[in-house]
């Protein structure tokens, strides 16, 4: 149980790291929202699942209740996080921000 919890948490941290790198490296507002919205949700699911498994080491009723509460956090974030990303993106479109396009390569003469 502990081993699988560690595996889950490490996987989740991998997703979080990918999300942070994506936010830093992507070129514009809309593409930065992509790692911010998606990888954070996935990383949260992984880390929270790991923590839920870790609390279930000693299998008892309070541990099950705690694990269920932890999974409730995931449910809440899975409802709200895509909505927040959608709202931010919508605000960007309404404010008139255009999407990024690749700059044309200058041909050296």
């Amino acid at each position: 149980m502990t081993v699988s919890a560690v595996i889950f948490i490490v996987l989740g941290l991998f997703f979080f790291t990918g999300g942070s790198i994506g936010i830093l490296r992507f070129p514009d507002f809309y593409s930065r929202l992509h790692p911010a919205g998606k990888l954070d949700s996935m990383g949260l699911l992984m880390t929270m699942a790991g923590m839920a498994l870790y609390t279930l080491r000693d299998f008892s009723l309070p541990a099950i209740i705690t694990a269920l509460k932890i999974m409730l956090i995931v449910v809440l974030v899975f409802i709200t996080s895509p909505t927040a990303t959608h709202a931010i993106l919508d605000a960007g479109v309404r404010a008139g921000l255009g999407p990024w396009t690749a700059p044309e390569k200058k041909v050296k003469e």
Binding site: L76, I79, T80, T83, H86, A87, D90
Partner: peptide, 10 residues
Amino acid sequence: VIIGMTCRLV
């Protein structure tokens, strides 16, 4: 609709 419904739910 999305934002309104989600907020109403949450």
